[in-house]
C-alpha cells in the first residue's frame, strides 16, 4: 500500500503551481482583483499576453472593429475575466501531456479541468452562490490528484485498479483497494503542499464524495461535485475509469438537479468549452496515443 506521502514524494517531477496562481488564488479567496498586478504577471509571459489579447479582441466580449493592445484588453476584460484567463494559461501547464495512465488522449485531462471549471461556475451562478469564481478555480483543480497518481505509479496505475474492479464499485473504492488512498485525497494533500487554502484542498478532497451533514458540509463542495458529473455526461475527460462514479443524492436534491436541468448544464458547459477552444485556437482533436 502506498501512503499519500510516498506518492507525493514524486512531487518534484510535477510542475509547481506558479506563484502567479497563488497570488490569483488569494485574490479569488478574498474577492479582490488587482488589474495592475495581473498586468505585471502578463507582461512577463508572452503566451499569457497573447491569450489576454485574444480574449480582449474576441467576439465573446462584444465586437467593436478596434484592435485592443494588452493594456486595453486588460481594462476591457476586467478583473474577474482576467483572473480566469491567467488561471487557464498557468494551470494548463500542470496538465500538459498528462492522462496516459488513465487511458486519456493528450489534452483530455486539461479539457476536463476546464470543463469542470465552466460547469462549476455555471451551477454556482444558477444557484446564486456568491463564490462563482472560487467554484471555477476548484472545478479546474479538482483532478490534480490524478497528476500525482500518474507520476508515482505510471502506466501500472490502471492495471492495478483494473485488477480490483467489480460491478457496482466506484472508481474511488477500487483505488482505495489498490493503493490505500485515492486521487481526490492525494489531490487535496498536493493542494495543501502547494500552500492553497484548506477550503480549496477540501473541495478537491470531496469532489466525488461531498459531506452531506454539518460539520463539513459546504455548498462549494456540492457544486464542484455536481460539475464533475456534468463533465462525465458531456463526454469530457472520460478515461479508463469510465462512469464509475456516483452523484451524491443530497447534492441532487439540494441543487434541484433533474434530468432536464442536467441536460441543459451539459450543453451549456460543452458549448462554452467549444467557444473557448475556438477562440484560443486549441483543437479538441488529440494526438493519438498508441
Amino acid at each position: 500500500m502506498a501512503a499519500v506521502a510516498d506518492i507525493l514524494e514524486n512531487i518534484d517531477s510535477l510542475p509547481a503551481l506558479p506563484t502567479s496562481v497563488m497570488r490569483i488564488t488569494a485574490m479569488l479567496s478574498d474577492g479582490t482583483s488587482d488589474l495592475g498586478e495581473i498586468e505585471n504577471v502578463a507582461r512577463n509571459d508572452e503566451a499569457l499576453s497573447m491569450a489576454i489579447m485574444r480574449y480582449g479582441n474576441s467576439a465573446l466580449y462584444g465586437r467593436s472593429g478596434k484592435v485592443f493592445n494588452l493594456r486595453e484588453s486588460i481594462v476591457r476584460l476586467g478583473g474577474k475575466a482576467l483572473l480566469k484567463i491567467v488561471l487557464e494559461q498557468k494551470v494548463a501547464k500542470l496538465f500538459d501531456g498528462a492522462g496516459e495512465a488513465y487511458g486519456l488522449q493528450r489534452g483530455d485531462l486539461w479539457r476536463g479541468a476546464v470543463g469542470g471549471a465552466i460547469a462549476a461556475e455555471e451551477i454556482a451562478k444558477k444557484h446564486r452562490f456568491g463564490e462563482a469564481d472560487l467554484c471555477f478555480l476548484c472545478g479546474m483543480l479538482r483532478d490534480v490528484g490524478k497528476l500525482a497518481m500518474e507520476s508515482h505509479f505510471g502506466t501500472e496505475y490502471m492495471a492495478q485498479v483494473f485488477a480490483r474492479m467489480e460491478p457496482g464499485l466506484t472508481f474511488m473504492e477500487c483505488e482505495q483497494s489498490a493503493f490505500g488512498t485515492e486521487h481526490a485525497e492525494v489531490g487535496a494533500e498536493l493542494a495543501l503542499r502547494w500552500g492553497l487554502p484548506e477550503r480549496i484542498a477540501d473541495a478537491i478532497r470531496y469532489h466525488h464524495e461531498p459531506p452531506a451533514e454539518d460539520p463539513g458540509h459546504d455548498r462549494l463542495f456540492d457544486i464542484v461535485h455536481a460539475a464533475d458529473i456534468i463533465c462525465l455526461w458531456a463526454g469530457l475527460a472520460i478515461g479508463s475509469d469510465g462512469l464509475q462514479y456516483k452523484l451524491a443524492p443530497h447534492v441532487r436534491k439540494d441543487l434541484g438537479l433533474d434530468r432536464k436541468e442536467a441536460e441543459a448544464e451539459i450543453t451549456t458547459t460543452w458549448g462554452r468549452l467549444r467557444e473557448l477552444e475556438e477562440m484560443m485556437g486549441t483543437s479538441p482533436a488529440r494526438e493519438a496515443r498508441a
Partner: peptide, 9 residues
C-alpha cells in the same frame, strides 16, 4: 450510466 443513477437522469 453513472453508478446508482436510480432512474433520476
Amino acid at each position: 450510466e453513472v453508478l446508482a443513477d436510480d432512474g433520476h437522469f
